[in-house]
Design a binder for these strands. Structure first.
Lengths: 290, 290
DNA sequence: AAATTTTTGTAACGTATCTAACAGGATGAC
DNA sequence: GTCATCCTGTTAGATACGTTACAAAAATTT
């Protein structure tokens, strides 16, 4: 924006002296509860300020707008920019790179995704999901799709440490029926399904649901059809300036959930981690020092 | 106010399930930049959401408003009330949760990681790495560790679409020597190694280096020992309030790189994507509609 | 595979909204 | 005190807006 960095409120304040009595009266009503008052119909604003409608129309023209609708449009723009919040303020993430560099553009998009997605999460549901998943009496199965199976496996690898009886169902496998044989109302299924939604995943979820299992779904903002049979749904924004979607937000969610589960189940997890470390030591898989 | 403590955004969120496809699409656009989008003319909102005007009118009625103007009036009321309150606080990511909730703590940490990591990236190196990886004359091998092989596979799945001659070396496999047999100075290795650094990964990197291959390393802030033989190193901060590390920042980096590579190689990638889509259609793997 | 229900868009209508023109009123100059 | 100028409200018209009715399309059921 060219003439910007000045809000409309600033502009009104600035020109306050050049305004006439009725116009000043009006200006004060606008600033009173800014910007809400300016976003309603012209007549309401006029009545609220105790002036006539044309006075309003004249003033906005005096302020340099083409008309009242244009004035409102700019007010909305301002509001939109403000709602982006403080973090949106940053100039560039990577210094030395133009704001047009893909690193900055992509990061912008992901941060935006995170903000939107996190804002929509119901913490009660989140906590309930964690509680369900650490319940050692309930077998847990995790399933993903063509791309999302990497997320599924990531969750699986960590849950494996936190508790026993966790299974990762490979998406491409033909062995699904076997997994479903012994499913009861006690089972919990974690399903990943982002666009493009996969038929196989939907069928598996439906079968698990029919068997009475609880279903926790991770999906995108548009929601996989699986959500119709899901007991809990977590949706993330995944749009990115790319031909593909960004899994960064879903990953963040999963990691947070892992962290929460670990806390819920720390007494057991601690012992399991220690035993795991021992075994790693024996296989010399990892280096002892940096 | 009577029905208060629930914002309109909450109400939309709550009824999201009872909405139809077009209405959900619309709901998302409203929430996208809330409340600004809802304060403009109905037709603008409809166009922005890609739905028809009546769909908007119908939805606001479904939500319990007498009509679009009434809906806008309540939005303005909400805005007015918000402006009154203590200076708009966006210090928590998930509304309704204390700032001490794990969702907020974890997200804070990840955003912090992103800021630090992105700030340290040299864009020249980044661009060079992308250029190296889209060079179809150079075979690319991708390798990860116990946890990071999920990242490796994520990169692999996408690069497979962008270009031919990409291999994912499974970390647990004993077949590494086979992969290394034909390695020349033309090869490029992408290595993932986060703490705890794995001996196998280091050995493989050393052997590839000895054969003259280029090595691109993704590691954490402390840097895997692999970096001694790496031509390019990208390090991310991975600390999180958890017993485990966060892969969100490395994932962001990888996704950005995928996006950059796609742009560099768009002419070829486009054709590959189309052929891939065709094959998906034939296997009926994905659903045609939402 | 056909039929019914639901959803979605197009078109037309009535209305609320904004603006332009005009006239009455206030303010200041001489 | 009278005139000129500027400001403000009333009236009326044009336009854009939201809504209703209808038809096409999609989805679901039989």
């Amino acid at each position: 924006m060219s003439d910007n960095d000045f809000t409309i409120a600033d502009r009104i304040q600035q020109q306050l002296d050049q305004l006439t009595r009725a116009e000043r009266q009006l200006a004060h009503t606008i600033l009173e509860n800014y910007p809400a008052s300016g976003l309603g119909p012209l007549s309401t604003l006029a009545k609220g300020a105790g002036v006539s409608a044309p006075t309003v129309a004249r003033m906005v023209q005096k302020l340099g707008f083409g008309g009242y609708p244009e004035f409102q449009a700019e007010l909305r723009e301002e509001l939109k920019a403000k709602a982006k919040g403080p973090i949106a303020k940053h100039d560039t993430w990577t210094k030395g790179a133009s704001s047009g560099h893909v690193l900055n553009r992509f990061t912008d998009a992901v941060i935006d995704n995170i903000r939107h997605s996190l804002g929509q999460i119901d913490t009660a549901t989140f906590d309930a999901a964690c509680a369900l998943l650490v319940d050692a009496d309930r077998p847990v199965s995790i399933v993903g799709g063509r791309i999302t199976h990497t997320l599924a496996e990531y969750l699986f690898l960590h849950m494996q440490v936190i508790r026993p009886d966790v299974t990762h169902i490979e998406s491409t496998s033909n062995t699904w029926p076997h997994y479903l044989l012994d499913v009861t109302g006690n089972d919990v299924f974690v399903v990943f399904d982002m666009r493009r939604y996969e038929n196989n995943t939907l069928r598996l979820a439906e079968m698990a649901h029919a068997a009475g299992a609880k279903i926790i779904l991770f999906t995108d903002q548009w929601r996989s059809p699986v959500h119709r049979v899901a007991d809990m749904t977590f949706s993330s924004r995944i749009v990115a300036p790319s031909a593909w979607d960004s899994m960064a937000t879903p990953l963040l969610l999963i990691e947070t959930m892992i962290s929460a589960m670990q806390d819920l189940n720390w007494d057991n997890t601690r012992g399991r981690i220690e035993r795991l470390e021992d075994m790693f030591d024996q296989t010399k898989l990892f280096r002892k020092f940096t």
